[in-house]
């Protein structure tokens, strides 16, 4: 009941933190998509490189977020950005690489070889093949990777409050330090709801982007 009162009484604050939280994740995953998709496509050309890249991305994702923030503080301090917005975005960008690269790589690799042969046979160059055939067919799987990255990193971003990046993690960290379960629970609930809503929102986007001829 207390928590409920806290939620209703601080709706402005919670909304502000939610927007902050979401924009951090959106910027980071957006950038990760811009890097991850081209990398995922590029590594389909060479199996050895693909193995190395996917391995590196897997290693990155195993680093605990709190440790990653710790590592970045001295490095980014050299440009005066040891804590706050920049390290938070970089961490999420790194964590997003694995699901996005791996899904892109898998999706492009799994395009039916007959389609690829047909595309070559009728005289499409590699860029046209990607643009007209391979990427449109890979969209559902690539988007699934983006969704995974977003949901996962909405959780990671809650921890970024500890390095002053803001977001809903602020409520959680305050709840712990002030021994105030209302803030703690409100923050946790808000993060969960945000993750669910973001996932559904992206699912809707995924369906919009999937070519009609292959949508279920």
């Amino acid at each position: 009941m207390d928590t409920f009162d806290f939620l209703t009484g601080n709706i402005d604050l919670i909304l502000k933190l939610t927007v902050e939280h979401l924009s951090l994740v959106a910027v980071a995953v957006g950038l990760a998509t811009l890097t991850g998709v081209p990398i995922g496509i590029a590594i389909t050309q060479n199996e050895r490189v693909a193995r190395v890249v996917l391995y590196l991305a897997s290693i990155i994702i195993t680093i605990p977020s709190i440790a990653l923030f710790g590592i970045m503080i001295p490095i980014l301090s050299t440009i005066g950005q040891g804590i706050g917005y920049l390290p938070a975005v970089i961490a999420v960008l790194l964590y997003s690489q694995l699901p996005i690269i791996r899904n892109t790589y898998t999706a492009i690799n799994n395009v039916n070889p007959a389609l690829r042969e047909a595309a070559r046979g009728i005289g499409m160059n590699p860029v046209q093949r990607l643009r007209m055939v391979e990427i449109p067919l890979a969209i559902p799987v690539i988007m699934a990777g983006v969704r995974t990255a977003v949901v996962m990193n909405i959780g990671v971003m809650a921890i970024a409050a500890y390095i002053g990046a803001g977001g809903l993690g602020v409520l959680i960290s305050r709840g712990i330090t002030q021994s105030d379960p209302r803030q703690l629970i409100a923050g946790a609930i808000a993060v969960s709801i945000l993750a669910v809503i973001a996932d559904y929102g992206l699912l809707w986007l995924q369906k919009r982007l999937t070519p009609k001829g292959i949508s279920a």
Partner: peptide
């Protein structure tokens, strides 16, 4: 002109 057994129509196109 190239026709293959698996046909290879692009499913994302009409």
């Amino acid at each position: 002109g190239y026709v293959i057994q698996q046909i290879g129509l692009f499913p994302n196109m009409t």
